[in-house]
């Protein structure tokens, strides 16, 4: 469904993605793990057309999109929804208006239909009766959920999560991870999750890739990864195992 072929992205002299090749299958939950600054978020932003690659190709459902203009990218952004690392809600708009924002721009739905979609999206992230609140009146965890609701309200085929649990407490982290699994399975979406959370990846991912310095150093199912001999993967795994041993 999604393919990256020889993707290169540079910032000045620094090469963030070094000819990355990756295929994402329809309906799978793919976790991308790696230390900070290895190009995980850059990969998602390239996929969404928020950044342009310096070389290589990005294929989405049989279309090569890397050279698309902003206008050409509109239908791609309808297909792919990105949940940002920060909630990125519009401060001056209510929760309802935040969620309706994308629906209004991408569809010609009536106000009644928009109302229904907003309520449904909020329901999917287990929130209700907050439509008239402003983002500043919500906790950080709730803002993250509203951000998720805003993305799924457009019913995308691909859900992209950029470190969805960063800055959250363990309970909310677990709830968000559960939501990712629920949404991916219930809405039958393809999900790509950029994360540092190996425990969560082992629990819900179909496949995990581990990146280091702009390249993929390991790829496989959770079971395959547990047997990996790559030192960074071992480090990630040992951290999880240590935490579990302490508990």
């Amino acid at each position: 469904m999604i393919q990256f072929k020889g993707l290169v992205k540079k910032f000045g002299d620094r090469i963030v993605l070094k000819g990355l090749n990756l295929s994402v299958q329809k309906g799978e939950i793919l976790f991308i793990l790696g230390t900070s600054g290895t190009g995980k978020s850059v990969l998602l932003k390239n996929l969404m057309g928020l950044m342009k690659p310096d070389a290589g190709q990005i294929w989405i459902e049989g279309e090569e999109v890397s050279s698309f203009s902003e206008e050409q990218y509109l239908p791609i952004r309808r297909k792919c929804g990105l949940v940002f690392q920060q909630p990125a809600l519009f401060d001056s708009l209510t929760v309802f208006e935040n969620i309706a924002f994308g629906i209004r721009r991408h569809t010609k739905d009536s106000e009644q239909e928009i109302q229904k979609k907003v309520t449904k999206a909020l329901g999917l992230v287990h929130l209700k009766n907050i439509e008239n609140k402003f983002p500043s009146q919500l906790s950080y965890g709730m803002q993250k959920r509203v951000s998720l609701a805003r993305t799924i309200a457009l019913e995308p085929k691909v859900l992209l999560f950029d470190e969805p649990t960063t800055g959250l407490d363990p309970v909310t982290t677990s709830a968000i991870n559960q939501l990712i699994l629920e949404l991916s399975r219930n809405l039958k979406t393809t999900s790509i999750v950029v994360s540092h959370d190996m425990r969560c990846a082992l629990d819900i991912a179909d496949r995990i890739i581990v990146m280091d310095q702009g390249s993929i150093i390991e790829i496989g199912t959770p079971e395959e990864l547990k047997k990996s001999q790559v030192s960074l993967v071992k480090d990630f795994l040992s951290e999880v195992l240590e935490k579990e041993a302490r508990q």
Binding site: K45, M48, G49, L50, E70, L74, R77, R78, G81, L82, F84, Q85, Q86, A88, L89, F90, D91, F101, G102, R105, H106, R150, T151, L154
Partner: peptide, 14 residues
């Protein structure tokens, strides 16, 4: 810096 501008682009607006 809070990614609201990127969010606007992702939601189909300029």
């Amino acid at each position: 810096v809070t990614e609201q501008i990127d969010a606007i682009r992702c939601l189909g607006a300029d």
